[in-house]
Design a protein around this nucleic acid. Sequence first.
DNA 1: TTGAAAGCGCTAACAG
DNA 2: CTGTTAGCGCTTTCAA
Lengths: 345, 345
Amino acid sequence: MKTTSHIPSTLKEVAAAAGVSVSTASRALTGKAKRYRISQATEQAVQQAAQRLGFQPSHVAQSLRSQRTGLLGVVVPDVANPFFAAIAREITLAAEENGFSVLLADSRDSSDTEKCLVGQLWSRRIEALLVCPVGLSSDHLAELDAAGLPVVLVDRGFSDSRIVTVTSDHRRGAAELTRLLTTAGHRQVGVLQGLVGTLPNDERLAGIRQALRSAGIELDPRFVRGDQFSESAGYEATRWFIEHHPEITALIGLSNQNSLGALRAAAEFGRRIPDDLSLLTFDDHPFADFLATPLSTACQDVAELGRLAASLIVERIKSGKRPRKKLHRVPVQVIERASVAPAKH
Amino acid sequence: MKTTSHIPSTLKEVAAAAGVSVSTASRALTGKAKRYRISQATEQAVQQAAQRLGFQPSHVAQSLRSQRTGLLGVVVPDVANPFFAAIAREITLAAEENGFSVLLADSRDSSDTEKCLVGQLWSRRIEALLVCPVGLSSDHLAELDAAGLPVVLVDRGFSDSRIVTVTSDHRRGAAELTRLLTTAGHRQVGVLQGLVGTLPNDERLAGIRQALRSAGIELDPRFVRGDQFSESAGYEATRWFIEHHPEITALIGLSNQNSLGALRAAAEFGRRIPDDLSLLTFDDHPFADFLATPLSTACQDVAELGRLAASLIVERIKSGKRPRKKLHRVPVQVIERASVAPAKH
DNA sequence: TTGAAAGCGCTAACAG
DNA sequence: CTGTTAGCGCTTTCAA
């Protein structure tokens, strides 16, 4: 028994079937019939032949010929993370609208993997690259960018960078969020830190420090704990605070994950939120309103991050010009819910 | 001022730089030096030239030549939906491990868009296609599959289908979940339905019906309400139940989204869960434990769904054989939390 | 041990 | 109005 061949039909076959040359077939199928004044009869014949054979032009061959692949590379640390998934989605939609396809890669939070994947994408001749970078250096990306491949960084960026970057206004968001605490009279604030050295982490921390200072409070270095955007890091840090610094009355998780860890630790140690401990966090999720204690949060506009990045890329591909403006900030929205109680003294 | 050209160097240039022919260069760079007994000297020369020019072979040209693109097409209804994001991730990881790249497409829950995207992917000569299908027919996919393109369906499938499908054991999961209700004495159970006609929806409904019947209860058709896997559908259905059938003591949301709508409606109408109304749902998410009322749920093994699908695809590509087993079931795990109260009579 | 040449499928310049 | 030809970048016969 033989299965139907899945070898796609070629233009040559279509041409043969229609009794014309390949060039005529090509012209008839790419809407150039008018321009070349192809007779109605042949045009139809070609189209019917194509139809009958289920002809789909090979984008591979077209790419080679035209030196344009219509491919966008997207690299994120974890596709399953809702934050990156949302970004990937916006890019994908924008890409599809503009006739591009998305090559998706998952760097698993590893800088080496990221480099490797970027190399592969490059060998596939992507026309632009969008990365939510991992690690603390962007040299390999800057190189590509300098070589003429449009690169856009999303979320994490690099201070020294000449690469176009789209990120939230972390500092201002963090400051506003912190004000919720100072207003409520909190003076002993613990921070559940994420990956030190990354732009979001460092800017958020700076925002918190600044807001505290405005309220006449100096952030105690011992009150900054943790080194990863992960649940376990948040858990460990919270636990450490509870055990060693019971004087702390409020916690700020520098990511959703960190705060999730805080929630677990608090539950485990019998600390009620917000009665025993206030908790603030970054980013949001659909069930936020229905948490036992709805968390007040500084929420990034993920969709806008994605959209902006996509439009910068598309714009750049179309115009061929590298924009002068490198750093793009998207506002952060503070949503006040019920996870801050007045500080007791 | 002129930016560095981003035109990638070609094998021809490398060959020229090394003072050899393209064929020699090719052989030296593809590890065929031994086989062709190329002299150490030339091999090194070629490699150095390649290094110096930053040569990356064009995967486009290789694809055309070899008729193998190493591309996997993935189509999901919504990349930002955690469920599909998780599936996409597993596929992506598996693909990367096996030397494939993933072309990601988002069908936006539209059957037409899906068809269109699949066409584009096909024209890019993907070697296999993984779809979380939308809509009620899979003819266009079955066609491709019959034509020899390995197609795997995930999540939703089709009863009549000859396409390899990976999905959860919805029926059993639903039945087990329902038993939580019958055991607690509930007899008036409302169902927040999703998209009618889809396999997950229909099988879950069947599972519920069956479990109720085992408890001597016939599911009242009026108690099945809703027509979409969406928050608003869940909200509307719940609202309708509250207004028209206050005798209902428990609700089962056929998706996370549906239940989220139920949560909103319940809050709005002052119904406490589970005291006034028990609520069960499908699927889970990280914050589940910290909801005001932790929902008991039938939880799909999303990672396993993705992994299984990926391995079926990879296996099939490598072997070239279409498997005889079409339908693959992944067990569902019921997690009991605190959203069911004993029924009052 | 190496090179020349053909060809993957397509488009476009050139030639009728 | 249509066909012939060259070439995108690569691999692989075939020939030396």
